[in-house]
Design a protein around this nucleic acid. Structure first.
Lengths: 143, 143
DNA sequence: CAGGATCCGTTTCGATACTG
DNA sequence: CAGTATCGAAACGGATCCTG
């Protein structure tokens, strides 16, 4: 599966257009969430985690996100087989978007993960700073 | 095309899961943007506008969003042919999400619509309040 | 004419099996 | 471990048709 270019044409310059092109599918945001909130970094972690993404789709999405500059990949120096994925600054910049989505879902729908929601509610800026700091120190997954 | 239920199963209770299920496609967020920022309300406006969505897809998305409680529809009292779509409080609650997405795209990508971006940057809370107010007064599109 | 439904070819998805 | 290959199923998109 080659790195997709959408078949449909989209007028650019309109707000949100670019965002939706990069993130408007069922998996991209979830992958980013796993990196940002759960500290996942390897193909296997994404694969075994959460919503059971198929391996071909995962490979496609990782490549796509990398092409968009949202994530970066590098070979694990200590284990040549492993590939380590990480968020770029641009990817990290999505933290406020994810945060607002979590709050929205919590307000109207989702009952899960109340701890996180309360944490964000109590101190949104602090939470965002914490996310950034984890990635500034590079790769301490944080559970 | 019946109102879709996703074929894949998704574990619930995980943050963002619900959001992505409702909004994780190429059109839903754009439709909401058009309602929220451009004041669009009718089938035809959505159809002729922006990125040239196909009418069957549009009908499906409108139904989906209505089923999720994000938008509501009612017949135009002054013109029986027309259907008027509007944001519910839940849909309006997406304003912060959209706002952050616009800011993110502006910071890393999109060059279009600088005016809006500057407005949001200057006074994010004021902008959100303004959006809410427009819909509290119901239906003054606001260009 | 507005809102949508139907038809149909094309693209993408997703599960599983398989490879370097 | 990190992906490819394959293939049936689903979703997409364009065009057209239907209905009030």
């Amino acid at each position: 599966m080659p790195a997709r270019k959408p078949a449909y044409k989209r007028r650019s310059g309109c707000p949100l257009n670019a965002s939706v092109e990069m993130l408007g599918d069922r998996w991209s945001l979830l992958i980013i969430r796993d990196m940002m909130l759960l500290g996942y970094r390897t193909f296997k972690e994404f694969l075994n985690s959460h919503e059971r993404i198929a391996s071909n789709i995962l490979a496609d999405r990782l490549l796509r996100l990398e092409n968009y500059g949202i994530i970066a990949s590098a070979r694990d120096p200590s284990d040549g087989r492993k590939q380590i994925y990480s968020l770029t600054p641009k990817g990290l910049g999505l933290a406020p978007v994810l945060t607002e989505m979590v709050l929205w879902a919590a307000a109207y729908e989702d009952t899960g993960n109340q701890a996180l929601v309360r944490l964000i509610h109590k101190d949104k800026d602090g939470f965002l700073a914490q996310v950034r700091k984890r990635f500034a120190n590079r790769s301490s997954p944080g559970k």
